[in-house]
Amino acid sequence: MSIAIEGKKEKKFLKEGTFGIYTGFFMLGSLVLAGAIIPWISKYGPDELASMPLAPPSRANFFGTDVLGRDVFVRVFDAVFIDLGTAIIGVAIPLVVGTIIGTLLGISQNKRVNSVVGSVIDGINAFPFLVFVIALIAFIGPGVGSIVLAISLVNWARYARIARTRAVVVNKQGYVEAARTLGFSKKRILFKHIIPNVSSETRAYALSDFIIVIIAIAALSFLGLGIKPPQAEWGGMIRDGKDLLTVGFWWPTVFPGIALCWAGIAVAFISEGLTRRMREVGTR
């Protein structure tokens, strides 16, 4: 009972979802800001020998040093841009490609193309995401470029499936039919009336996918298939420190782990907040 009243009270001050959106952006913003400033003002470079190997957290090295004596604090924040940047590109490419291909399939009348490309989409989606990405990287070799390529090659199909289903619905809506009777060009109908209403759905999925992709990138580096050392990267740092966890040297693993969780939770907050707001508005 009291919860319901509290909820009502809260609504007066804050629009539904505002808390999540603000918290998420604050968390993400602080991480990005730290990623921009800390490597720049720090005494040590990310690859520089800062102290004794495996020195515990201290005033000189806030997060301690890793097995090679590099400063974990600098390395955690030096990894922000490579981790988030790769994830953003790894989401943006499949989002754009998948939305366009899916929309075209959804509105296409060509049954043969529809069934061929549809089977490709279903085939890709039938495999577990990470397993398929790892298999692809085994072919094309590790590195930032291959991560983005492999993730894009697998992930577009998920966006395409969402977009196709949505496009079939949007294509039959009155506003699209009206645009046709008004004699608008096919290009205008596609880009102004169909795609914006299809992509509202795929963009919503992109946010939750962003979390999966951040974790996938870290997982690939953890397996040694991702971003190559000595470049600081959360997954790689966790791997380098994992064997030392059991013998008391927790700091080389725990701090990059916290950073990874921080980024994931931030995006989850934004995603959840936006979903709630959309639900309140009642339309996408």
Binding site: G174, L182, N197
Partner: peptide
Amino acid sequence: QVQMVFQDPYGSLNPQ
């Protein structure tokens, strides 16, 4: 010269 008004008022306008 030939235009149409559709049945469903909720689907006949682009929500964007």
